[in-house]
Design a protein around this nucleic acid. Structure first.
Lengths: 192, 192
DNA sequence: TCCTATCCAGACAGGTCTGTCTATTTGCAG
DNA sequence: CTGCAAATAGACAGACCTGTCTGGATAGGA
């Protein structure tokens, strides 16, 4: 018991961090199945044995990749200052515009991963399920506070629009997306 | 010149047809990279040499798979009887409800393929581009005829909603989708 | 009947994938 | 200084991948 807290406070094993950063970049930009372990350890500058010391398998690395992205999104939303419900919804949806105009956008990483993981019971798919439930629930609560008569339905429409706009930014014209986000809120939210 | 039209009228080479049907089923349900040629020819009951006689490479088969799905969608829409613009839009979007309630839905095959093809200049991605341009354009024309003041913007919203609802049917609750399609039209289309 | 195109079965080459293992080196805690 | 934990490089096994090739079977048109 009482595992020795011998980790350096800053960084918690840089090898693991570099592996995760490299995997995140490569999985996102090229696809999960398309990127092999050899490539990841080479670009991270880490030995193979070290990799398998930190992650039992590639699937475990993929799951960590998805879970970390999910957590970052939730943290970003948690960090929003309290505002009236409509402003909260606009802030949440505004993250879409920020993400797709930052450059290097290659679609929603969760939808991309789901396309490569057909088994709905796989850990990756379960993590994606959790992410989507959280997103829908966040919107639904703010919509209810905003006086929406059918907050769950409107939340579903906003979830679908979010996914669709993220894909549109990847496949069509990313520069149109911020305006479409604003337009969607204008049309789907109840008048204040 | 004058290539001998010796093909039997019915079926145009059943081996090719079986290969394409098997590939369509496997690519869609399991993913493109996840399915190898050996598996396709085994389940199609076709020899390997025969496969490479009909398709120069696997990527060629993938492209044919995408192009055929695209063509089928366009044909289905072309077959719609002429109706007032709003009914045309409802019919086009109604295909979403039909698709996702038929069973075995695993997401939009074009979005799934795009997730596995990061290169925007690849033939597969170009085919997907064409598909999306056609879909947006179809909606835009009917919206204009319906008196929408900004038909292109509304068309983009409907495209995004279509993509998002197709993913929602895969990842969340498919049974909610038909109602959401109707709700979206109710809220986004101009009053008649 | 014969010819030609198409089919089948399957071996093979050359590459890549994941995961294991050996053997050595580095660096910090006690 | 000693010892242990964690790092390194890289070989290796076993599976799978795409694409080529050989050799033989089948069938329809001239």
């Amino acid at each position: 018991m009482s595992k020795t807290v011998s980790q350096t406070v800053s960084g918690a094993s840089t090898a693991r961090r570099r592996l995760l950063d490299t995997a995140t970049r490569l999985f996102y930009t090229e696809g999960i199945r398309a990127v092999g372990i050899d490539r990841i350890i080479a670009e991270a500058g880490v030995a193979k044995a070290t990799f398998y010391n930190h992650f039992p398998s590639k699937d475990d690395l993929v799951l960590t990749y998805i879970e970390e992205l999910d957590q970052q999104g939730r943290d970003a939303v948690s960090a929003f200052p309290e505002q009236p419900p409509r402003a909260m919804i606009a802030a949440i949806m505004g993250r879409i515009s920020d993400a797709v105009t930052a450059g290097g956008w290659r679609g929603c990483p969760f939808l991309n991963a789901a396309a490569e993981y057909p088994d709905p019971n796989s850990p990756v798919r379960r993590a994606i399920d959790g992410r989507r439930a959280w997103y829908h629930d966040s919107l639904r609560k703010h919509l209810a506070a905003n006086g929406d008569p059918v907050p769950s339905v409107t939340a579903s429409l906003l979830v679908a629009l979010s996914d669709g706009l993220l894909e549109m930014a990847y496949l069509d014209e990313p520069e149109d997306v911020p305006n479409l986000v604003a337009e969607a809120l204008e049309r789907l939210l109840v008048r204040p």
